[in-house]
Amino acid sequence: MIRVQGLRKSFGRTKALDGLDLQVSVGEVHGFLGPNGSGKSTTIRVLLGLLRADAGTVTLLGGDPWRDVTRLHRRLAYVPGDVSLWPNLTGGEVIDLLGRLRGGLNPKRRATLLERFDLDPTKKCRAYSKGNRQKVALVAALASDVELLLLDEPTSGLDPLMEQTFRDCIEQGRDDGRSVLLSSHILAEAEALCDRVSIIRAGRNVETGTLTELRHLTRTSISADLAGPPNGVASLRGIHDLDVEGNRVRFDVDAAYLDEALRGLTEVGVRGLVSQPPTLEQLFLEHYGNGSAGGRPADPAGAAARS
């Protein structure tokens, strides 16, 4: 489906992509992860032929994305990260227009999607919120019979309910045999949907693999209200950044020690508990420091998993 090797792209003196590799096979949902400004959108724009690669080879659906624009674009659909629509057109009009320009859309699927995403197609686009504009682009993309979906942070404006709908739609797309490149900076989303993920930073691959292969990267944030003073929590294994305020504790824990940490908490007694998977930014800050581009992995496991 997609094969990118040694892709380079600079804007003036800024290096947006610095030797990026990416491979998406047929029928795969591929997560494309990285912090803001790491080059996800630039890569997708190169794949769409909107930007021209400075160096490297890019193959999309067996063609050259820069040269075979119209032929390739009939077979794919794209949802931009920053959806900007024509203020005086209605959402329904935009969905139809984009679908027709792509070579037609499935009216039955269109109706179902509008209902599932709870989107009013008669509203003018200027009246839509960010989330609703994103839904317009999503419905337009998902209602087309295409082989490949390129989605650039498609859920950044959706509420949790709609995010679940989105996940269902993507899973259904996978069952129909579609391939998906899903860019995101939310690990949880990638975990829920993706067969494989590529993690990039500063225009370069940091990790590629299945989620189990990358599991060692996850570190969960725990915030808990305890029944008594949190004695002994500090001595638990795999705990980072512990913060104690009266009976309230906050810390990050390595996935391997999550069990142990929770057991330690219940010994004191838990009144309230919030656990959050880390954002990629936190992850990168923890694992690679805040320094130079493509920084060195601090732990050997990370280095081994590098492709």
């Binding site: 724009r45 769409l48 032929g49 909107l50 624009v69 119209t70 032929r71 674009h73 009939r74 794919l76 659909a77 794209y78 931009p80 920053d82 959806v83 900007s84 629509l85 024509w86 984009l98 320009l101 792509r102 070579g103 682009a137 390129l150």
Partner: peptide, 15 residues
């Protein structure tokens, strides 16, 4: 610049 050309050029519309 309003990013409205992008979704169009991502369809089968040539530049």
């Amino acid at each position: 610049t309003a990013l409205r050309a992008e979704p169009l050029l991502a369809t089968a519309v040539s530049r």
